[in-house]
Write a protein that binds this DNA or RNA. Structure first.
Length: 189
DNA sequence: GTATCGATTAGC
DNA sequence: CTAATCGATACA
């Protein structure tokens, strides 16, 4: 699976003459037309069009009236699958991250999908950005996935298709959005 | 046209 | 636990 393989690799963001890098420690897979929790479940729309396009592009969407989230499109044209980047361990650009995020603790700088987009400075204008040419790419990354085991479980914050364990994270990593210490709250209703 | 919800977060 | 805040979606 693409999602699992991304763990431990390094996401590099060089936009607007800045440089931020982070180890990918938590992701979720969304599987298009076959996945009731995916934005692409009901077909192509203006928002999700990038997911139906070629792979290795950023799908950036706006949600809750105030947050953006970053996905990496990972299947061929016509198949709308993407991986949501939920959390990174900061490796470069921490001073800028502290300024953008307004928090001091390193483990909170890029913990949670909204925080990732805010930290990297991503918004809808970056939707469709090709990886590798537009200032955003995935580098080879850390050996042995940061020396942690990969765990999987239900995705966070969804109401449909909760039985599918398509969230993947590095076990015990302090930059994971919901670990042992912080359990995910149940989605209401 | 109106009503409801959301791949979230921070704060109490 | 809730407010914030607005685009997407559901429904009349």
């Amino acid at each position: 699976m693409v999602a699992r393989a991304l763990l431990g690799r390094v996401l590099v963001c060089e936009l607007a003459r800045t440089r931020i890098a982070g180890r990918i420690v938590e992701v979720e897979a969304y599987r298009g037309r076959h996945d009731p929790a995916s934005h692409a479940f009901r077909g192509r729309t203006g928002r999700n069009a990038v997911m139906f396009g070629p792979p290795a592009r950023a799908y950036v969407y706006f949600t809750y009236g105030m947050h953006h989230c970053l996905n990496l499109v990972c299947e061929p044209r016509g198949t709308a699958a993407a991986v949501l980047v939920r959390a990174l361990e900061p490796l470069a650009g921490e001073a800028l991250l502290r300024r953008r995020r307004g928090v001091r603790e390193r483990e909170r700088l890029l913990r949670g999908p909204g925080c990732v987009a805010q930290g990297l400075g991503l918004s809808r204008e970056h939707d469709g950005l090709p990886l590798g040419r537009g200032g955003l790419w995935v580098a080879a990354g850390a050996p042995r996935r940061g020396r942690r085991r990969v765990r999987s479980g239900p995705r966070i914050g969804i109401r449909r298709a909760r039985g599918r364990p398509w969230r993947y994270w590095l076990d015990g990593h302090p930059c994971v959005s919901f670990g042992v210490a912080r359990a995910p709250r149940a989605v209401p209703r």
